[in-house]
Design a binder for these strands. Sequence first.
DNA 1: ATCGAAGTGGGGTGGCACCCCGTTTCGATC
DNA 2: GATCGAAACGGGGTGCCACCCCACTTCGAT
Lengths: 188, 188
Amino acid sequence: MPDTRSLRSDARRNYELIVAAAVAEVARSGADASLEKIARDAGVGSATLHRHFPSRQALLEAVFHDRVEGLCAQARELATAAEPARALADWLRALAVHGATARGLAASLLASAREPAPPSSSTCEFMLRDAGGALLRRAQEAGTVRPEVTMDDLLTMVNAVSLATEDGPHAERLVTLAIDGIHPAPAR
Amino acid sequence: MPDTRSLRSDARRNYELIVAAAVAEVARSGADASLEKIARDAGVGSATLHRHFPSRQALLEAVFHDRVEGLCAQARELATAAEPARALADWLRALAVHGATARGLAASLLASAREPAPPSSSTCEFMLRDAGGALLRRAQEAGTVRPEVTMDDLLTMVNAVSLATEDGPHAERLVTLAIDGIHPAPAR
DNA sequence: ATCGAAGTGGGGTGGCACCCCGTTTCGATC
DNA sequence: GATCGAAACGGGGTGCCACCCCACTTCGAT
């Protein structure tokens, strides 16, 4: 987000038209939607789209910005819940459902996770890592999550599941499975 | 595999040239390698490639055929191991490493898993489901794996992890995590 | 040696990402 | 409210791709 307020009025208008068109198109066709079509729908030239968003990733970040903020807010609420491990699990499930539901969110997060060091460090991925990290730390301090588990592990796992399922209920089931493991009873 | 022996000699020769080129190219660029380039490398026209392999998926199936057979063989060996749950876990880890290592294998398996009902039912995916299914059943009968876990769960999970990591050690770590869950000690 | 069927591949079509650069529009200034 | 440089625009070009058509070549049974 290169601070929309510093843009000229026409530029800002186009920026918003593009994001709106991208939201619609990504919802329909997923993360690999055609950028040309998004530009066409927004009523701007493709060059304008590419000027505002130098990479597909940059556009997706704008598209998913609200959803990611929602998840971060949810994490902040859960940070004071009674059972830290359950709070973490609930949040991971919510993340999985968003990732599987919002076509392309998971793919987008994974892609940015694999980048070496994205110059603009305000990416969605970091916001989520921080938000979830707090939940994880609390659960580990309470002794209900093993200490060697990292936020990276969990984010990758959840995004992997979302990516593979693209369907809410399945994603939730698999995340629950991964959290509890495949062995019987004693868990918890 | 439409039974290579029923083809005319030149057709069979081309079929094999294409698969050889595809193996090399997929190893270099992953599952979304350029089909045009594969055809060029194989020294055939692109139409020939498309005639032999009507979809990208069909070509990938031929490319990964050997690897999948190897995994099935390994499953058959493990089917008599002493600790069924450990045998299953070992096999899943092996699958994850292959999926993460052989660029595109995981993506390919997941794609075929999501197809509604692929007409030719001899796909890699079914072979793996059967091979792993035996290991899972044995572990469940021994009571060391919960009965509601399905082979579908495990295959999706492992492929998801492979897809998300594309790197052997990470994939193995995450599969182990998913098998044992995130909670401390009592597991096993 | 013949000949029909099986197989081939050059070239066409339409779509895509990404970029160049002549033109338009904005808005700070007076 | 007219001026003008900088900012933004977008049509059109390039090169890549998947996929298909169809005139031509090759195989192999007879």
